[in-house]
Design a protein around this nucleic acid. Structure first.
Lengths: 341, 341
DNA sequence: CTGTTAGCGCCTTCAA
DNA sequence: TTGAAGGCGCTAACAG
């Protein structure tokens, strides 16, 4: 029964046990300088016997580095953020950096205090776009590398994102040109997130290039309930549309379900498209036409970029993270073979 | 352009700027002792002007605590681990603790070094059951509180889990008694995770209590591809079954898709059940009968328990985290109303 | 209410 | 190849 007051072994305990100085212990533990084989053995044995593990805080303080990266994400609903997180963590681990995660939930915004505490414990910080007020970010930027992920390049912040606008224009164009739709509407609120704004821009552009009027976006958040709401708004206004380009799959799926329940046919009466290619997208009938992003790569890239900024290496060009439109039945395309993914 | 060599302000800079001692700065920053209003103002002003943020490592070293919790999870596929993570993070944040996350992927096991580095930077550690060798855990336990989440109570480790066996027995019994199936088979490998083992036990028990023979489990992992494999194994053996109790929803969905493609009817030819109630489970037709766990609560509870172990408070009884069977069409039950979640 | 002064555990010159 | 000693930035007595 280890009492809460068991301090645990320190580098001094190990040095004593091994009959050497703490400097030597330190040296064998990080292979910084050469140590005779025999001394090394002794030290390692002592370490093992005592179950010694160097306090990270002491290391960091002395070394002047936290060896950690911070990541700020919204709720982990759907595969998008999980993928991002996985990519980030994997890359960080590969760089021997640990990751400190902070989640921002609707009812639990990341106040200045929490953000500061996070920033105070890491060497660099990746933040999802649109999650934290610019002035808070600006302040952090002065202390350590800060990267805005999947946000638009707001003035002065390093940013990193997958392509949005062109893909949105592409799906919209597909619905218009390949399936003859003429009155598409966008489901989502361009204000809730930079990503959504860029997607709406692509949507807009496709319409404008064809001389079509651009209807106001349906608005609402990115969750399933918001999709239901959007559908009901559509029904209430008499459905002045024949295609719905949704800001993500959650919305698209819920909206489709609600409209179908109301007796409408997808893609017969209206085409529907989503974004993210969640698992359900390939299982529903009709399959959901959507856009797949290299989210995992995005996360990994974020970690690498941060690391380079921290070590002072020249940040190599991020390149463009391309997305891919996945055509299924919901836009009117023939359903691809079996539902197996 | 902040050079990588900008050390940033320290408590000394702030003390100087405010014309007080570092002790006073420390006091106002953590409200530990009373400070005159005027001095407080001065200090706060200096802090603000300098954008000062206390190095976490220095704080931790002096205070003897990391104010952080570690969490080790496998890949974040499906909603299960994301939910767990969210619950954990939310609770930790509420306790003013940050969370350090380590992911274990198939091709990237958590070797002793990485695990030690993680443990060295936190005050307590929650690890998903079955992810890390017992001896590694055992060693960590000697240094700091360690909690095994969603694993069986392996000898000597504090553990925490949602109910598995009774629910598994319940779904199995439902399929047998309510739908008259007689030759169910279990899809999943009891060896891959403690959870799966307990579910298989429940499955087994339901059969034994009815004097039915217990077929060998189908084996395989927990991903969609494994579900497809299981389906094909079933097809290859001539389908000696009329019900498949799957270890999770991914398997169940993929398996159903594969069997359906082969011309079999669900639930007509065979009933299928899953576990976790992923989003897709409510969207597919027939809806997937599954078991929903309070995963988020599990995560939160883990954080709280760790905190209590750390602060030495008497750990309050975890209680039983109850699960709930969600009946949909795939077992033969009438489909619940509309697909809207 | 405020300042002085030891450490916290480790890394890293600088000598030997 | 090894040891001694001085910080790293902060907290927490202990005096005033």
């Amino acid at each position: 029964m280890p009492t809460p007051e068991t301090p645990g072994p320190t580098i001094y305990s190990v040095a004593d046990a091994a009959g050497v100085s703490i400097a030597t212990v330190s040296r064998v533990l990080q292979g910084s300088a050469s140590v005779s084989a025999r001394t090394r053995e002794k030290v390692l044995a002592a370490v093992d016997r005592l179950d010694y593990m160097p306090r990270a805080s002491a290391r960091s303080l002395a070394a002047g580095q936290h060896e950690a990266l911070g990541l700020v994400l919204p709720e982990l609903h759907g595969p998008y953020f999980s993928e991002l997180l996985m990519g980030f963590e994997e890359a960080a681990a590969g760089l021997d950096l640990s990751v400190v995660l902070a989640l921002v939930e609707p009812d639990r915004p990341l106040d200045g205090a929490r953000f500061t505490r996070l920033a105070a414990g890491v060497d660099g910080l990746a933040v999802l776009g649109g999650l934290i007020p610019d002035d808070v970010l600006r302040r952090a930027t002065r202390q350590k590398p800060l990267l805005v992920v999947a946000g638009e390049g707001t003035a002065g912040f390093e940013a990193l994102a997958a392509e949005n606008t062109a893909s949105a224009e592409q799906v919209t164009a597909h619905v218009l040109d390949a399936h003859g739709r003429t009155r598409p509407v966008f489901a989502g609120d361009p204000e809730v997130a930079p990503d959504v704004r860029l997607r709406f821009e692509g949507f807009t552009r496709a319409l404008e290039r064809r001389g079509l009027p651009v209807p106001a976006p349906l608005g609402g958040g990115l969750r399933e309930a918001d999709g239901v709401d959007a559908a009901e708004r559509l029904l209430a206004t008499g459905m002045p549309t024949d295609a719905v380009v949704c800001a993500n799959d959650e919305i698209a799926l819920a909206l489709t379900a609600r409209l179908t329940a109301a007796g409408l046919a997808v893609p017969g009466d209206l085409a529907v498209t989503g974004w993210d290619d969640v698992m359900a997208a390939s299982y529903v009938r009709p399959g959901l036409t959507t856009v797949r992003q290299p989210v995992r790569d995005l996360g990994a890239l974020a970690a690498h970029q941060l690391h380079e900024r921290i070590t002072g290496a020249a940040p190599h060009d991020p390149g463009v993270l391309e997305t891919r439109v996945v055509l299924r039945g919901s836009c009117g395309c023939p359903e691809p073979a079996p539902p197996a993914p």
